[in-house]
């Protein structure tokens, strides 16, 4: 427990000192501000491009458009930034040998894995919360009358998928020696999830539904309860990834 807290403190310190935390927060803050703005301005930009003779009918922007931007940015750019920033979470410490010192001081390997995961989850939570908060404030300001359903639940699903992705990332970094290997394995698993999603029957249970069905939830074309099994599966898979990471790392030759 000593080791876990001390190492968690070190991890957070590292995120702030190496600007990783700042990069995450800035990227997600930019998304948060631009999501509703883009939704609001896009029709006007397109409108200004219109010349005589061409008539494009552009529907009035709604809060829904702002949230479409939010889920699109977070699930694409947001996840990519997060995965790339975290891909060296273990490999850099192992290749440089900074971890050896601490392990030979009696730091348990389980504590290393758990505190690294905790820190990544904290950073992810802070980033998504910031992004959500900014988008929410601006959306309410720009589109005050629009009504949205299942918003919090939808964001929660996205957050849960982030947790799953980070657990997969950590397992990949335990399995591979380099940060590229870690990226490759994580990418392969995400692609595999996407491929599985082409089978309609699997969609209900696939973790990736948590990051794909968000708009459906908002427009009520998808019922909240249809995602419960995917949530359960994601949580179980995250736990499994964590357990495997710990077990494999404990037996790894360093």
């Amino acid at each position: 427990m000593n080791g876990y807290l001390a190492f968690l403190k070190k991890e957070i310190f590292e995120y702030t000192k190496t600007y990783k935390l700042m990069i995450m927060l800035v990227v997600f803050a930019i998304f948060g501000i631009t999501n509703p703005l883009m939704a609001k301005l896009m029709p006007e930009i397109l409108g200004s491009l219109m010349t005589d003779g061409i008539v494009i009918t552009i529907p009035e922007a709604t809060a829904c458009d702002a949230w479409t931007q939010f889920f699109k940015n977070a699930t694409q750019m947001g996840f990519i930034v997060m995965v790339i920033l975290s891909s060296s979470v273990l490999s850099s410490e192992l290749s440089k040998g900074t971890l050896i010192n601490l392990l030979t001081k009696g730091l348990s390997r389980t504590a290393v894995i758990l505190s690294k995961y905790t820190c990544m989850v904290l950073v992810w939570t802070a980033s998504i919360a910031l992004c959500f908060g900014l988008t929410y404030i601006y959306t309410v300001y720009l589109f005050p009358s629009d009504k949205i359903s299942n918003l919090l639940f939808s964001v929660f699903c996205l957050w849960l998928f982030g947790l799953f992705l980070l657990a997969v990332l950590l397992l990949s970094s335990v399995l591979s020696k380099s940060s590229y290997g870690c990226l490759l394995i994580t990418g392969a698993i995400v692609v595999a999830c996407m491929l599985v999603n082409t089978i309609p029957a699997a969609h209900r249970y696939n973790p990736i539904s948590l990051a794909a069905d968000n708009m459906g939830l908002l427009t009520s074309t998808i019922e909240a309860h249809s995602l419960y099994s995917a949530m359960l599966i994601s949580s179980l898979l995250s736990l499994l990834c964590m357990a495997l990471s710990v077990l494999i790392f404990r037996k790894k030759q360093l």
Binding site: K10, F13, N101, T104
Partner: peptide
């Protein structure tokens, strides 16, 4: 333990 080339957190 003192490794042959000890590495620490540079920050």
């Amino acid at each position: 333990f003192l490794p042959d080339v000890p590495e620490f957190y540079g920050y």
